[in-house]
Amino acid sequence: MKYKVVVVDDHLLIAKAIAAMVQEMKDFEVLYEAENGSVLLQKFKTRENIPDIVLLDISMPIMNGFETAQWLHDHYPGVKILVLSMQDDEASLIRMIKLGAKGYLHKNVHPAELEKALINLIERGMYFPQWATAVFFQTIAGPPPKESSKDEKLSNRELEFLHHVCSELTYKEIADLMCCSPRTVEGYRDALFEKLNIKTRVGLAMYAVKIGIVKVE
């Protein structure tokens, strides 16, 4: 089974080139291209047009990438967004992550990394290259709190889990490293979600950086 991809970009030649690259990948196929978010909305009215992944540009007329990401986040949260844009500034990256993007690449990306990103989105749920990770964590990383509140007291096993969350390991792989079952790891995750009022793995990784569990060079 091939995973379905849609390319959303207002530059026809670029959209065609990206689609051609994806079509060469053994695990993926392109359903169609859309020149902006408005066209994508219309396409989504047909169930067969709903993909697994949307490759999304930011600068587009009528309905840009930010607006499209917001709509997808609100109406189709199961569709993974991989931003593919010329904009690599901090503000665009952070805004897209907040809107639910699971990956962010520059348009000059090598085809091999694009394929790696698509595979990671399917298998691990996200993909951010080193430059994006550095920008993101440097933005949110602040000095560790002097003292955690009572609600934020974490066990040693929860702290160990937080450290692994910042890697590209799957939850099953984390369970193997921690010598426990995947269900136990999910229990650590859910407990941290509740204690820290965090809802995503990215949020847990952000917290891990903030309190100094993971250092950003």
Score class of each variant (00 low, 15 high):
H11Q: 14
L12T: 15
L12G: 08
I14P: 06
I14D: 05
I14C: 07
A15S: 13
A15T: 05
A15V: 02
K16M: 14
K16Q: 15
K16N: 13
A17H: 09
A17D: 07
A17T: 14
I18E: 05
A19E: 03
A20N: 13
M21R: 13
V22F: 00
V22S: 01
E24L: 10
E24Q: 08
E24G: 06
M25N: 00
K26I: 11
K26F: 05
D27T: 07
D27I: 02
D27L: 05
F28I: 01
E29F: 03
E29S: 08
E29H: 02
L31W: 09
Y32W: 11
Y32F: 11
E33R: 12
E33T: 15
E33L: 12
A34Y: 00
E35L: 07
N36W: 01
N36L: 05
G37M: 03
S38K: 07
V39D: 10
L40P: 06
L41F: 11
L41G: 11
L41M: 14
Q42C: 12
Q42D: 13
Q42F: 07
K43E: 15
K43D: 13
F44H: 11
K45Q: 14
T46M: 08
T46S: 12
E48K: 14
E48C: 12
N49C: 14
P51D: 04
D52A: 13
D52E: 07
I53G: 02
V54S: 08
L55E: 07
L55S: 12
L56S: 06
D57C: 09
I58H: 05
I58G: 08
I58S: 09
S59Y: 05
S59R: 13
S59T: 10
M60Q: 05
P61N: 03
I62S: 04
I62L: 10
I62A: 09
M63A: 02
N64S: 11
F66C: 09
F66W: 06
F66S: 01
F66A: 07
F66G: 08
E67K: 12
T68M: 14
A69C: 06
A69N: 04
W71M: 04
L72P: 07
H73Q: 13
H73F: 06
H73I: 01
D74W: 04
Y76F: 13
Y76R: 01
P77C: 06
G78D: 14
G78Y: 10
V79Q: 03
K80S: 08
K80V: 01
I81T: 07
L82A: 11
